[in-house]
């Protein structure tokens, strides 16, 4: 317990939050039947991973621009994925599929 309190800092706290988000979003991704909800869960899961990435690295050695740059790339890839999924879902719904 003392170990936890000593080593605990802001960066580590957000890494934990990221892990919680990742787990919750994973569950939501699997259970939800609506494609849009799945997409939202994917985005939140991604945010969880990004928080782990930055939080954990900065916990080890302070502000680090490398994971921040990686996450910036990750955010852009995630928005591209979201946009692509939305394009496909919209087309699918227009063809009579269920969202």
């Amino acid at each position: 317990m003392t170990l936890w309190l000593e080593a605990f800092n802001t960066d580590f706290w957000y890494a934990i939050v990221g892990a919680v988000l990742l787990v919750l979003a994973l569950g939501a991704f699997i259970t939800s039947r609506q494609l849009i909800k799945k997409l939202l869960a994917f985005n939140i899961m991604g945010s969880g991973v990004f928080l782990i990435m930055v939080g954990l690295a900065q916990y080890q050695h302070g502000p680090d621009s490398v994971p921040q740059a990686l996450v910036l790339t990750g955010i852009v890839v995630a928005v591209a994925a979201t946009a692509l999924a939305l394009v496909l879902i919209r087309k699918f719904v227009l063809k009579g599929g269920q969202p």
């Binding site: 990742l22 991704f29 991604g46 991973v49 782990i52 990435m53 690295a57 490398v66 994925a81 999924a85």
Partner: peptide, 21 residues
């Protein structure tokens, strides 16, 4: 396919995050 692959990528990326840390 897209959803399965995106889920897979996130699993991979989570591993990368832990390894970098």
């Amino acid at each position: 396919y897209l959803f399965a692959a995106l889920l897979g990528s996130l699993g991979y990326l989570a591993g990368v995050a832990l390894l970098y840390g």
